[in-house]
Design a protein around this nucleic acid. Structure first.
Lengths: 290, 290
DNA sequence: CGTCATTACGGAATGCGTAATGATA
DNA sequence: TATCATTACGCATTCCGTAATGACG
């Protein structure tokens, strides 16, 4: 088998068509260069060069091999650069999971920031609820989650990205729309309430149960998609407690009313990742989280 | 700079994820293998593997580098095969020039034969007259010519491919079509004759002038394309002496009459090539010429 | 005789294998 | 203590550079 040194030597000779000049370019003397070429030819069992006293010419095989040799040299130079970029986290893949609500505004900003600072990092995005995210993080199929509480905190590092207010979504013309703000959460008893599903949106369910004294007669459950809930509000099926970022949905015919202080900053979104994740691109991305 | 041995070692370790098994596969012991990997990492300034007591894992950079390493290995194995095939003449490029008349039948057969026996040899074809072919051979822009006499013979090797009869093309219904065959060439005096141009088809011009006693009053000159000449015959402008292979044109309304022995085998076609041409594919092609 | 490419030879460096050492569960 | 990976060391090989030789105009 030939060596990369032999390839480099051959390319130099093929380009200079002169052993002396090639040796000079390679910072070596002619004899070892000559030997390297001979060795290469012997290992290939092919004559690559015609030696004439006044110079050197490529054989047809040499011409063809020169093309292969050049591409070999190019790969040889590219490979370390790729590895270094990956190791430095400037290139690579980061797999991100996010809850549906995170997609309204924050995710877009995050993606813009990452693509600006780390243009060679590819992002793979999947919408999934918090429980799915922690599971995927554990089995190594996800690098970063944008998740709700609670998550077991000892295996993960996390950063608080957002602490939003809960607001009250009401249909335009609803009697509460004209009351004085902020609305007292206790005044909601008796009003039909569109609720999250306790199964798929446990976080919101628990949060709201802790805030509002529920009158179970008046609760309408949905599958937990905030978009669906706001649509039901618009249709007059009741009112709903939703994160402030739901305003970003821009659904006509729905007003969002500020609630009292007990609903302030209670909707949190965390970035979470495994502490022992060794993806260098992940730490670059994490360092961009404000 | 790293070496190909280091690349091979790394690929083995990355695939086995175990130094011991990788060393076994490479027919060597663990210590040198370990050193090769260390050296590779040091030259790249990148950690490629996580060493754990129970095994080895690839880092993100290692994963990326593995892809590059594999393609490097593939090129390394492909390159000698290409060079050898070229050197053996089983692959490569042969540039062939041919006269227009050679294209009627013989060229097609020749191409079929070459493509059957040397499927990896690429053929570049150009139509050119004999003088252009010899010039192109001299300056090295052509490997093989299919040419008419005369050509300077000492710098070239040649092989006679074809010795055709001259036949007489006449329009259907012409009075000569019903005379006894073979037609005596001397009986043509006084008959309008469609002739080759002495400038661009010198070979045919000289040949026919040597056979027929020309009556200059009755000569119609063309630019030398045999197709054009036969068309003029069909249009009733006269008769023409053309090589037998002109039958291959399959032009309706024209008959081809055998001439006497003085016209037998006088149209020759030679394959010619420079004796010092070092294109290995050329000698393969030449050896296929029957 | 002048220009290149190729052998001849001595010293330095590299690489393998065996044996010993480290590190970790 | 059992399992890997890594250093330690001796020996063979490889490779460079200087000097001599060969081939061709």
């Amino acid at each position: 088998m030939f060596t990369l040194d032999q390839i480099r030597c051959f390319v130099a000779v093929a380009e200079e068509l002169h052993f002396g000049r090639a040796a000079e370019r390679l910072r070596m003397t002619q004899p070892p260069l000559s030997r390297q070429i001979q060795k290469l030819e012997r290992s290939l069992d092919v004559v690559l060069l015609h030696r004439d006293p006044r110079g050197v010419q490529l054989t047809a095989a040499g011409q063809a091999f020169l093309g292969e040799a050049r591409s070999l040299m190019a790969s040889t130079q590219r490979a370390p650069a790729i590895a270094k970029a990956i190791a430095a986290g400037q290139a690579g893949v980061v797999r991100i999971g996010f809850t549906a609500a995170a997609g309204f505004g924050l995710l877009g900003e995050l993606l813009t920031t990452i693509e600006h600072h780390l243009p060679k990092v590819t992002l793979e995005l999947s919408e999934m609820v918090t429980r799915e995210q922690t599971h995927a993080l554990d089995e190594g199929s996800l690098d970063l989650g944008l998740a709700r509480l609670p998550f077991a905190s000892d295996a993960y590092d996390s950063r608080l990205l957002l602490a939003e207010d809960l607001v009250l979504a009401v249909p335009a013309g609803h009697r509460l729309a004209s009351t004085v703000r902020p609305v007292d959460v206790r005044s909601l008893s008796g009003v039909p309430l569109v609720m999250h599903s306790p199964l798929t949106a446990r976080y919101f369910y628990d949060l709201i149960v802790g805030l509002v004294r529920l009158d179970h007669q008046n609760v309408v459950h949905t599958v937990g998609q905030i978009t669906t809930m706001v649509s039901l509000v618009k249709a007059g099926r009741g009112v709903a407690l939703v994160p402030e970022s739901a305003r970003g949905l821009r659904i006509e015919g729905v007003r969002y009313l500020q609630l009292d202080d007990s609903a302030s900053g209670v909707v949190t979104l965390h970035a979470i990742w495994k502490r022992d994740n060794d993806n260098p691109a992940l730490s670059r991305v994490v360092s961009l989280l404000s």
